[in-house]
Every structure is written in structure tokens, then in C-alpha cells.
């Protein structure tokens, strides 16, 4: 659906995606492509299907219909391999309440089969996201913003080829926002496809070069993110939401 032009096969290739919860259709016939190195912002009103789409791409939710390729892997046929390619920051929480950030990273390193250098990467991320001093405290005591930052750390930890961030800026302080933007830039530079769902249009514009607007589970518009910048962009976005 989007018009990002890169020669390599897409990092994310979704065609005809449908997700139904009983009588409720959360996502209806959605097409979406994100090329390696590209950043796409998924925007839209509450209930538009953004988080559901990311949950499908993250391998948490099976689609009702459609094909989902992440990092070139069919997420339905080979969900385990697909999850290896993906780093996913869920929209709410996403942390085991009575485990520490370090224990989350240990678990991720073991389950992802990361090499011995994972500790260096973990230290680096915790420092950049200002979580080093809280690395051994259980996450139940974290503020909402700290939890968001930690979720981004976990998503980016293994340098995935597809980075999925659902509301990564929600309640995060400016330094945390800067660290997240930097991680998105770094992921794109190494060729990862980045998909960011957010209500903060200004940050979406900074993080991504493409914006896809969802409404009632369908793509209603796609445009270069820069076109949604400024007051005119805001006005156009509001128009698209109606």
C-alpha cells in the first residue's frame, strides 16, 4: 500500500489481512509494505486496528485471513522464525511485573539464542535509555514512562530486521523520546524495517518517512510523513480521521 521504494524485498509485506474477534472486525483487508531501512508510522483513531495489526506482525495474534511476511518469513506458516526476525514493543505494559529489566534481557538473550556479547548490548541500551540504575528492580515498581522505555529496549535488544513499536512515546520524558528516536534511526540505518504506531503525530513525522492512516481496520491514506508535519499537516490528518 505504501510507496516507499527500495530495491530489497520488503521487511514487512501484509496482504489482505483480516482479524476478527467474534462478530467484531478489528482489521479488514489491510495491505501494508515496509521496505528494509524504511520507517512507517501507523496512525489513526482509537480502535482503528493499529495495535491489532502490530500484534499480528509480532506473532502474538494469528490473523483470520491474509498473508503476513515479516523479514521475508511467513508469520502464519513459520511463526517461530518470524518472531526471531521481529522486535516487538506492545502497546500496554509488556513487562513481567515481578521480573527485573536484567532478568527480561537474560530471558530474551536465552530464548533468542544470542551470543556472549549480549551483556554489552544490554548495558549499552540500559544506559542510553536511563535504566541502568533500575536494572535490578522489579518492573512492578516502574513508572509508566520507564515501562515504555524498557519495552523499547527489549524490542531493539537483538537488533531485529523488523522493529515494531506500539505507542513507544506514550508518557515518556523528552530524554527517553530522544533515545527512542535514536534507536529507530540506528535500526533503519542497519536496514531494519520500522513500523511505529502512535498518536503523537509530530514524533511520528520525526521517526518515519511514511505515514499510513488507518480507519476501521482499513488503510484510508498513505503519504510521506513530512506532509503531515506542521499545522497544515495536522489539519489534513484530522480530515483523514473523519
Amino acid at each position: 500500500m505504501t510507496s516507499v521504494s527500495h530495491p530489497a524485498p520488503p521487511g514487512v509485506d501484509v496482504r489482505g489481512l483480516q482479524v476478527r474477534f467474534g462478530p467484531v472486525t478489528a482489521v479488514a483487508d489491510l495491505d501494508l509494505q515496509v521496505a528494509p531501512g524504511a520507517g512507517v508510522a501507523l496512525v489513526g483513531r482509537n480502535g482503528a486496528g493499529k495495535s491489532t495489526t502490530l500484534r499480528v506482525l509480532g506473532g502474538v495474534l494469528p490473523p483470520s485471513a491474509g498473508t503476513v511476511l515479516v523479514g521475508g518469513v511467513d508469520a502464519v506458516r513459520d511463526p517461530r522464525l518470524a518472531r526471531e526476525r521481529v522486535g516487538y514493543c506492545p502497546d500496554v505494559g509488556g513487562l513481567v511485573p515481578r521480573a527485573t529489566p536484567w532478568e527480561h534481557l537474560q530471558l530474551a538473550a536465552r530464548l533468542r539464542g544470542m551470543g556472549a556479547d549480549w551483556e554489552d548490548r544490554a548495558h549499552d541500551l540500559l544506559t542510553r535509555f536511563d535504566l541502568a540504575t533500575a536494572a535490578d528492580r522489579v518492573t512492578a515498581g516502574f513508572s509508566h514512562g520507564m515501562g515504555r522505555r524498557m519495552s523499547v529496549v527489549l524490542a531493539a535488544f537483538h537488533r531485529p530486521s523488523v522493529l515494531l513499536l506500539d505507542e513507544p512515546f506514550d508518557g515518556v520524558d523528552p530524554l527517553g523520546v530522544e533515545a527512542t528516536l535514536e534507536e529507530i534511526r540506528s535500526a533503519r540505518l542497519r536496514g531494519a524495517a520500522v513500523l511505529v504506531s502512535t498518536h503523537l503525530l509530530g514524533l511520528a513525522v520525526q521517526a518515519c518517512d511514511e505515514a499510513v492512516v488507518l480507519r476501521q481496520g482499513r488503510v484510508v491514506a498513505a503519504a510521506p510523513a513530512a506532509e503531515l508535519a506542521g499545522e497544515d499537516g495536522e489539519a489534513r490528518y484530522r480530515e483523514l480521521l473523519r
Binding site: R55, G58, G59, V60, R80, L81, R83, E84, V86, Y88, P90, G93, G94, L95, V96, H104, L107, A108, L111, R112, S151, L154
Partner: peptide
């Protein structure tokens, strides 16, 4: 949700 997204 996060654990479900891990390759295991």
C-alpha cells in the same frame, strides 16, 4: 504479550 512475541 512480550513473552508470546519471543521465538520459543
Amino acid at each position: 504479550v512480550w513473552i508470546a512475541s519471543l521465538p520459543q
